[in-house]
Design a protein around this nucleic acid. Structure first.
Lengths: 333, 333
DNA sequence: AACAGAAATGTGACCGCTCACACGAACGTG
DNA sequence: CACGTTCGTGTGAGCGGTCACATTTCTGTT
């Protein structure tokens, strides 16, 4: 039975009060007599009334909806973050639009303007494809913005930053500890190596240990299983001297391990593999994957909490939220 | 600069027409003189106006938003489906709320009522935790509903069904072909085996080949990596006679392979492992995983397309959309 | 008993848009 | 040139709420 919507007026006349009183009950205003409140609550229950969020949003100009922009929800890193965001949002009655940009700068702009027109209350962004300028423009003109793993400087944008440099350092030092000196790296083809903190950490750590980074050993590929697989095969064919590979993320690392296997290169004996992100699969691969671990769920959680803080205090500028990483040593190194 | 919202009235007075004319231009009504339309379009561009979806939804009672209910977006199966849904929705200007139920029936009910109050235009559901009755009640009282991989019978609910029975049959027959007769199965602890089509297919196929299913060999566990890992170890400890395992999904299978490995059981020599879903990881594991494959992205795409059809023709009852599966043989069997 | 002040409730306007309708101008027709 | 049609545009109302303010009722004080 598709009954036409029950409005606040229906409840009001059923309870014998004015619509405004019903509104007060809904909004938990103190200014309602206990007795009246009960009457209204009974009416609400009786009529199975629930207020239209649309109408509420219309007048309050708050939608209780936020946008989450990620490169690709298909990547286990992002969906763990997404869960953290969603769960935290839901607990406060907020909903989340998840948008994929596929690491495409134009897509990212489209998605941001779409979100703006959707009238979300805020945006959490975890991508690196749009330029800082575009992002700054968005923060300036539109809604509160929380940015994950990216350094931009704007009073209306907040940061949540995993200590990626430290992660890269731990990873490379671990490989050096294991006696490796010919350490290659697989990075994300979508980004300039100069802007990728993993690459910077990789280079710095090598240099700190007296090893000169060899640019031939830095390969750019799509940051997924197939990208890691193919890049590894090409790399090892060209540079058989390599004995260790550090990758942009675990997806690439898992592809890399399979790439080694298919070439008859044994992991870790012939070539050690080191990932980044510590996704759940990494403990289950064969050999299991050493990686840099941090709590992705917490990343999402903190980002959402920060967004809530920004709603409450719109004019405050918040300090970045740092998140620590740790090295997880498994069989692949 | 947070300028207060530009409304249709601003555009109207800027262009020197009435607000209704602007509305007509926005809604691509034919009833506007070309000349006027240009004036209005220029004004829109000039003022950088975009209509408030909120206000539009308010009056049209359509939000251009749909809800996607999945058990856990963290499962690769679901997020590939989710991508299919999202991409298809976005192409038509629709947004998607993704909700996780964590396979918790109460959570599912909560999510459904939340979505109803959110005033989504429709719902796509791919979970099995709520009862058929609850789902029917939802379809009856609320919005168009597309259900994935589940048989419910209601004129207002549409189905997209992967041929899971066939998948289970192909899987088990393949194991039998390989000479196995002691074939165990790992299923989803959240559902009664009698309702799981994979289990039905498993039992039927065994019987069809003269093998009596042994209930001791059917283990229920959480449908994830760890669930597969632990269940496998327990199973093989109790029943070392088992030489093949068919799992509810690839996540469990990957956990199972690792479980075998850690017990010194070689895959596939000592024990073959057969998955279901063919997620991307399965080609990259070591050994790579045999599985039942179907296009998860297309599942999402078809579900969304069907929902659009339901919007267009609210009173039509649509036939279920079938999707075929195929066997992918890799190294684990 | 009279009055101020707080507490409880009611009324008008409006959020930004679309719908149904009204209205005048332009058009062809006999 | 009076007529009905079509076309182009404008007006009133209302979607379902909340806000600011007005109004009434209940307190407490002297």
């Amino acid at each position: 039975m598709v009954r036409s919507r029950i409005t606040i007026y229906d409840v009001a006349s059923y309870a014998g009060v004015s619509y405004q009183t019903v509104s007060r009950v809904i909004n938990q205003s103190k200014r309602v007599k206990a007795e009246t409140r009960e009457k209204v609550e009974a009416a609400i229950k009786e009529l199975d009334y629930s207020p239209s969020r649309l109408a509420q949003s219309m007048v309050t100009q708050k939608t209780r909806t936020i946008g989450l922009v990620v490169a690709d929800i298909t990547n286990p890193f992002f969906f763990e973050v997404a869960r953290g965001v969603q769960d935290t949002a839901l607990a406060q009655g907020y909903n989340v639009f998840v948008c994929n940009t596929d690491d495409n700068p134009q897509g990212e702009q489209d998605v941001l303007t779409l979100l703006a027109s959707q009238e979300v209350d805020g945006v959490i962004l975890s991508t690196a494809s749009s330029t800082d300028e575009e992002l700054l423009a968005f923060a300036e003109n539109y809604k509160p913005l929380v940015v994950i793993n990216r350094d931009i400087d704007h009073p209306k944008a907040s940061l949540v930053n995993v200590d990626i440099c430290k992660g890269a350092k731990l990873a490379v030092e671990h490989l050096i500890d294991r006696g490796h000196t010919h350490i290659a790296m697989l990075s994300h083809e979508g980004h300039l190596p100069e802007h990728v903190r993993r690459v910077l950490g990789y280079r710095e750590t090598l240099e700190a240990h007296g090893i000169t980074p060899n640019d031939e050993w830095l390969v750019l590929a799509p940051p997924n299983l197939m990208g890691g697989y193919e890049a590894t095969q090409e790399l090892l064919r060209k540079h058989p001297e390599i004995t260790a590979i550090f990758t942009y993320n675990d997806l690439m690392a898992i592809g890399a391990m399979r790439g080694c296997h298919d070439m008859g290169v044994k992991v870790p004996q012939d070539c050690a593999i080191m990932g980044f992100d510590d996704i759940k699969f990494s403990a289950m691969t064969q050999p299991s994957l050493s990686s840099i671990s941090f709590d992705k769920y917490v990343v999402g959680q903190k980002a959402m909490q920060r967004l809530f803080e920004m709603f409450d205090e719109p004019d405050t500028t918040f300090a970045p939220i740092p998140l620590d990483v740790k090295l997880v040593i498994r069989e692949s190194t």
